[in-house]
Simulated scan of single mutants.
Amino acid sequence: MTPSLPMLAVTALAAGLLGAPSPEVPPLGDVVEHVAGHASGIYWTPQRMARAVPVKLLGGTPPVLPPVVGAALTPAAGSALVPGHTMRPVARTGTTRTTQAGRTDRTRQAAAMPPATTSGTRWAAGGSVTRTTGRVFLTLNGVDFSCSASAVRSANRDLVVTAGHCVKDGAGAWAENWTFVPGYDEGRQPYGGFPARRMFVAGPWSRSGDDDYDVGMVAVDDLDGQHLTDAVGGQPIGFYPPRGRRTYGFGFPADPPYDGERLLYCAGVPHGDPQGQTRDQGLRCNLTAGASGGPWLSGFDPASGRGTLTSVSSFKYSNDHRTMYGPYFGQAVRDLYRTAERA
């Protein structure tokens, strides 16, 4: 286990494998699976959700950093789409207007766009990301916690991607009462909560809590007969992304000065781990515990709220309060995805 701080409550393309898995079909690569116990329909009351806390100590790791007010960010990884989707620069079309009214229109449009570099800003631009990103509520070792996560495109149309420590306590226990609430906003649950049915982490995370593999994937139940991505959509997922591309990281930080009730984001350009202890990339980001598992989207279009999921918020070092790290989506995460999307 590297000396990192898991934050809870904090170019190959994906090849989809259709159909449900059978007991004879082993996982692709080193993947560990868990059949989730169904969360009671009445367990996650608004009161329990309000009391859920970001984890302060997970296994034998150091405690989560104290709240950090004000920090500058940069997000992670590059771009690779699931088959059939090509990443392109956002094109601005139409005839250029030269009138004063036209200049005013363009000025207003530019002013309305969210900052492309920020260490922590409320996301108010709408779009797909407000539906596909949500909060996760779970119980671990008898304590109720919250995380962040994203719905992704998958063969089963039911897949959620988050941090590994939002699914399993490293070599310890699996989470219980695991429920994904997409589109969460100040207590509102416009699409309801989707409980877990099968959970997946990479072997190195399950055996030793290796931060390079701090990724969890969860296949959720249908809700009233509707698949998750049929209800809210899903971001494409990418593997082997180019490093150092501008990325937007989203989540629901729940430690002060935040309260977990609103979607926030960081945006910038990532860098490697200067301490050399992981292959992760670091973002200058002041989001606190509760943002764990939130999606890092590269090739992101603020106008539509769509991008490619290429990492998730994972940890901060105790001697660097301002940088969030996220694992690199290579072969292990690709195997994890290809196994989980069959569930």
Rank of each mutant, 00 (worst) to 15 (best):
A151D: 00
V152S: 02
V152T: 14
R153W: 13
N156V: 12
D158I: 04
D158N: 14
V161F: 08
T162D: 03
T162I: 09
A163W: 03
G164V: 02
G164Y: 06
H165G: 03
C166K: 01
C166M: 01
C166V: 06
C166E: 00
V167E: 08
V167G: 01
D169I: 00
D169K: 01
A171C: 07
A171I: 02
A173N: 07
E176M: 09
W178V: 05
V181K: 01
P182D: 01
P182H: 02
G183A: 08
G183K: 04
G183R: 00
Y184A: 06
Y184D: 03
Y184V: 01
Y184T: 06
D185K: 10
E186P: 00
G187I: 12
R188A: 15
R188G: 04
R188P: 02
Q189N: 07
Q189P: 02
Q189Y: 07
P190N: 06
P190I: 08
P190C: 07
Y191L: 12
Y191K: 08
G193I: 07
G193Q: 07
F194E: 01
A196S: 08
A196F: 11
A196R: 05
R197W: 02
R197F: 06
R197T: 13
R197A: 03
V201W: 03
V201G: 04
G203T: 01
P204R: 11
P204S: 04
S206R: 06
R207G: 11
R207W: 03
R207K: 14
D210C: 04
D211N: 13
Y213I: 05
D214A: 03
V215R: 08
V215C: 10
V215H: 13
G216L: 11
M217L: 14
V218N: 13
V218T: 09
V220E: 12
V220A: 07
D221E: 15
D222K: 15
L223S: 10
D224K: 13
G225H: 07
G225S: 11
H227T: 15
H227C: 09
H227A: 15
H227N: 13
L228R: 12
D230I: 09
D230H: 09
A231W: 08
A231Q: 10
A231D: 02
G233E: 09
G234S: 05
G234A: 11
G234R: 13
Q235H: 15
Q235C: 00
P236Y: 10
P236V: 14
I237K: 08
I237T: 15
F239S: 06
F239H: 04
F239T: 13
Y240V: 10
P241Y: 02
R243N: 12
R246E: 04
T247M: 13
Y248S: 14
Y248E: 11
G249D: 08
F250R: 10
F252R: 03
F252A: 05
P253W: 05
P253N: 10
P253R: 05
A254F: 00
D255C: 00
P257L: 01
P257Y: 04
P257E: 00
Y258R: 06
Y258V: 04
Y258M: 04
Y258C: 03
D259E: 12
D259S: 12
D259Q: 08
G260F: 06
G260V: 04
R262Q: 14
R262T: 10
R262Y: 15
Y265W: 08
Y265M: 13
Y265A: 10
C266G: 15
V269G: 10
P270E: 04
H271M: 11
